[in-house]
Simulated assay, not measured.
Amino acid sequence: MIEEVLNFLYPSILDGKVKVIKRLTENIPLYGYADEIRQVFINIIFNAIDVLGHHQNFKPTIIIKSYIDDRHINIEITNNGQMIPEELRKTIFEPFFTTKKLGTGLGLFVCKEIIEKHKGELTCYSIPKKTTFTIKLPIAVENKE
């Protein structure tokens, strides 16, 4: 699914001269609505591309990493743009909050709603030159040896 999203966003990635690094676990089955999960990936990755395009950044980079822990898959989408200040991190998932001129402020709110509907979590961690959105979702089938 992440490959599909990256192909869909390829023109924006190319236009923004963004390097995308993938460190992904093999295909992991999830319960849920693929179109909704896909929309979450599109929103978060596109936001990262957008942020990197608005700031002077020597090597704009997005790292997409996944790993499994305790019957969940964690997908981290990290960019090396500016830090999101703590006071903004508290409100970025609220409806109608935006820092974009043409934004509606619904993107991250809808993403959080979708992930929570799928019994997961969406969080944001930001320090100077590194912002990570982590999507944690339950795995559909336990691996049995």
Rank of each mutant, 00 (worst) to 15 (best):
M1H: 08
I2A: 06
I2K: 03
E3A: 14
E4M: 12
V5W: 06
V5C: 02
V5Q: 02
N7Q: 10
N7E: 15
F8Q: 05
F8N: 09
L9C: 11
L9E: 04
Y10D: 12
S12P: 01
S12M: 12
L14Y: 14
D15P: 00
G16M: 10
G16S: 15
K17L: 03
V18A: 06
V18E: 02
K19H: 09
V20E: 09
I21F: 00
K22Q: 13
L24A: 07
P29M: 10
L30Q: 04
Y31V: 07
Y31F: 08
Y31N: 11
Y33N: 15
Y33P: 00
D35H: 10
E36M: 13
Q39D: 10
Q39R: 11
Q39H: 13
V40W: 09
F41R: 02
I42R: 09
I44Y: 01
I44N: 03
F46N: 11
F46S: 07
N47C: 03
N47R: 01
A48C: 15
I49K: 03
D50K: 03
D50G: 00
V51K: 10
L52A: 08
G53Y: 03
G53F: 02
G53C: 12
H54R: 14
H54C: 11
N57Y: 03
F58K: 13
F58Q: 10
F58M: 12
F58R: 14
T61L: 01
I62E: 01
I63P: 00
I64M: 08
K65R: 15
S66H: 11
Y67M: 04
D69L: 09
D69E: 09
D69V: 02
R71L: 08
N74P: 00
N74W: 03
N74I: 12
I77L: 02
I77S: 00
N80S: 01
N80F: 02
Q82F: 07
Q82T: 02
M83K: 12
M83F: 02
I84K: 06
I84T: 03
R89T: 15
K90T: 06
T91A: 11
T91I: 13
I92N: 08
F93W: 01
E94F: 09
F96Y: 15
F96K: 13
F96I: 05
F96C: 10
F96D: 15
F97E: 07
T99S: 14
T99D: 13
K100I: 04
K101D: 07
K101R: 10
K101Q: 14
L102D: 11
L102F: 14
G103P: 10
G103T: 09
T104D: 15
T104A: 14
G107M: 00
F109L: 01
V110F: 14
C111K: 00
K112R: 13
E113C: 04
I114D: 06
K117C: 11
K117A: 15
H118F: 05
K119W: 09
C124I: 15
Y125R: 08
S126N: 08
S126R: 07
S126Y: 07
I127G: 02
I127W: 00
I127H: 01
P128M: 07
K129D: 12
K129M: 08
T131P: 09
T131Y: 04
T131S: 06
T134F: 02
T134C: 10
I135S: 05
K136D: 03
K136T: 14
K136N: 06
L137E: 10
P138R: 05
I139L: 06
V141L: 11
E142Q: 12
N143R: 08
K144D: 08
K144S: 11
E145P: 14
E145I: 09
